[in-house]
Simulated assay, not measured.
Amino acid sequence: MESGRQGRGVRLEDVAKLAGVSMKTVSNVVRDYPHVSAKTRERVQAAIAELGYRPNLTARRLATGRTGMLALAIPEIDQPYFAEVARHIGEEATRRGYRIIIEQTLNDIEAERAVIRDREEGLVDGVIFQPVRIDTMEIARLRPDTPLVLLGEGARPLTTDHVMIDNVAAAREGVELLLRQGRTRIAFLGMVRRDPTQSTHLRLLGYQEALHTAGAFSDPALVIETDWFSVDDGVAAMTAALEAGARFDAVLCRDDLFAQAALRALDRVGMRVPEDIAVLGWDDTALARYSTPALSTISPDKAAIARTALDLLEDRMAGFDGVGRHRIVAHTIAERGTTASES
């Protein structure tokens, strides 16, 4: 056999022949089976590298019932929160011996239905999915054969495992923090028109509950509407509210992108943060840590979201077939430079 043979045509038996071992030994090395001597493992890995061998997923599935691959379906890979959650899930999956395929659905209902309809069936062992538009009943009706765990505040069928934070409680705590710091007129940025998500509605509910419970000033004009989720939309909405005469001394933002928008709009009109107006974001992304001033923000435990989702998914992959389990992951408030008690 020519040792220079490369490419997709390389077979397990080619690696075994070059390494001078059995095909079973090569298979054990590929599957990271522990009971292989270091010397033999090194010889097999050298043969794999020389030949450019790539394990065939279909063959692996036939042999083991597993591909070692998982899918992560998220709305947008360039949205900071989803990007950071994807990183945590990818790192946790790697620690557990899996590889991740990441797919973005772009908030498209047909793309979300395709995830539920087992588009990855036979390619992956399980799917972690953050839906936006597909509803609870449709997920229950289309319940896939591939093990599935849902993330986020969207659909939560009883048949499916689900991981989220308590958005209402987190918003309440954010408002309570601002009230304790002496803020009396707290705005909410922003209520997105035609919002397909549940996140905004839950966060707005927590904001309203906290104001009501505290007997604090509540003005519908301080719920600032935006056209969409971008920083530019947030800047335009905040600027329009200020120009219309809205007066507030703090703002709770639905995410860190809108918090950046608030900082930009307030800077343009000469408002000081936090002296004139405190700003509290949501998600604790890199945007929060590197803004000026550093952004105070509600911080979901993203590492715990990843661990919990993979724990549930591995249970399903191992054969658990009970009713859906719904896990609430912890959150904190990261207090930085954009909130401070008034003197």
Rank of each mutant, 00 (worst) to 15 (best):
T226D: 02
I305H: 02
G182C: 08
Q45D: 03
A288D: 06
H331V: 03
V127R: 15
D232G: 12
E176F: 03
T285C: 11
L158S: 15
S291H: 03
Y290D: 07
D32E: 10
A171F: 04
A306F: 09
P196I: 01
H35D: 13
T94N: 03
P274G: 06
A19G: 01
A214Y: 03
H162M: 09
E110W: 02
D267N: 09
A286N: 06
V163K: 04
A169P: 14
L266D: 08
G4N: 13
A86C: 01
D311Y: 05
A259G: 14
L62W: 09
N28Y: 13
A93Y: 01
A221C: 03
L106K: 11
L151S: 03
Y33F: 13
I277Q: 01
L72T: 05
F217I: 05
V192N: 06
L211Y: 03
L313P: 07
E176T: 15
R143V: 00
P220S: 06
V163F: 08
D276P: 00
P220H: 00
T338F: 10
D195A: 07
V44I: 06
V175T: 06
A294F: 02
A241L: 08
A221T: 08
T292P: 04
R272N: 13
V10C: 05
A170S: 14
G319I: 12
G126A: 11
E84C: 09
H88M: 04
K302S: 12
E275A: 13
V329Q: 13
N167S: 14
I333D: 08
D256R: 03
R156G: 01
M271H: 12
N28S: 10
E84Y: 04
E173H: 13
V30I: 15
A111P: 07
T136H: 04
A330N: 12
G152W: 11
K24I: 11
R307P: 03
I116F: 01
F258C: 15
R31P: 00
E110P: 00
T332V: 09
L211N: 05
I134P: 02
T67H: 08
Q6M: 11
D161A: 05
A155P: 13
T338Q: 09
A244C: 04
S22R: 07
A240H: 01
A170I: 04
S343Q: 10
R11G: 00
R141Y: 08
D118E: 14
A171R: 06
N56C: 08
G324M: 04
T58I: 15
D249R: 02
L280D: 01
D276W: 00
R143G: 00
L222A: 08
T40V: 15
V127Y: 13
E342A: 08
V279M: 08
A334K: 10
L204M: 14
V323F: 09
G322H: 10
A187T: 07
V44W: 00
A38D: 14
G215Y: 03
V329P: 13
L313C: 10
T200C: 12
A210M: 01
Q130D: 11
